[in-house]
Amino acid sequence: MAQFASWCTHCDTPVGAHYMRVLTGDASRLHFGIGATAAIVPDHYASEEHVARVLRMLGKPGAAALIEEKLPTTKAIRSGDLGEIYATEWIAANTVYQVPVKRLRWKDHRNMAMRGEDVIGIALDPATAQLSFLKTEAKSRANLTSRVLTEARAGLDKEGGLPSAHALSFISARLVELGNLPLADAIDNATLNVGIPPATVRHLLFTFSGNAPDGLLTDALRTYAGIYGQWSVGLRVDGHTAFVGAVYDKVIADAHYP
């Protein structure tokens, strides 16, 4: 887990019928944030099983090379990936939804952004087999602006606000490969048979930025006129660009540590 509570303060604010949380990195504890984040980043790019197989076959240098070859090298892609990783980790730690597939493992190229919804949280009611979804857009910028939130809003509103069939098909196919057949079957039934009722969908806008997101997120929630419940979570870290660089530097250093 990203252990946000160990290096961030937070403030929860209702905005109309919606919810907003702002996390602020404590300058005196950012080294904890760098360490906690670096510890989870590799698993978002390569499965533990894959790393373990390479470790057994080629030793620590081979496993380190596998991880390093998966990591993006450009500042922009690192920033965007880390925003998606933080959104995934926040959902897992703070909501009833799970993110069953870490999609960065299937990037076409490490320095390319993936298309489609950034993250989709899924909850399965064991009693009714009813699925509910958390459609998520994650934005990471050193300087967050209203234009960036407008782009995120457009992404959330695509497909009538529902998760796209393409994104859910991708998740289902990966779940079959991973052996999670009950959840794969439930997703296929929802997308190919019974449909997804809007009442089972909620939206999350997650931002990771160097400037304060409070006012921007509040304005975006106040102007939203759609039918879906909205969550907005903003993570602020002063020195955003340096922080991102420090995280990836530590991932590489830890991978090569004897």
Rank of each mutant, 00 (worst) to 15 (best):
H203P: 03
I171W: 02
A199I: 15
P213N: 05
L183R: 05
N211L: 11
T207S: 04
A173F: 13
G226W: 15
F206Y: 09
A220E: 05
K250G: 07
T223M: 13
Q230L: 10
F206C: 06
I187L: 05
T207P: 00
I171P: 01
E177S: 15
R236S: 05
N193E: 15
V247D: 01
D238M: 13
A253S: 06
S209T: 04
L183M: 11
G215N: 15
L178H: 03
T218A: 11
K250F: 13
D188Q: 13
V176N: 04
L216F: 07
V251D: 00
E177V: 15
P197Y: 10
L204V: 08
L192I: 14
G226P: 04
A225E: 10
I171H: 02
T191R: 02
G179S: 08
A246K: 06
N180M: 14
S209H: 02
Y224W: 12
D254Y: 05
A220H: 02
D254C: 09
L192D: 14
P198S: 14
L183Y: 04
P182V: 10
I187E: 00
G210Y: 00
L205H: 03
R222C: 13
W231H: 13
G179A: 07
I187H: 01
S209R: 00
L192F: 14
L217W: 01
G215V: 14
S232R: 04
N193M: 14
T207F: 00
S172Q: 11
G210C: 05
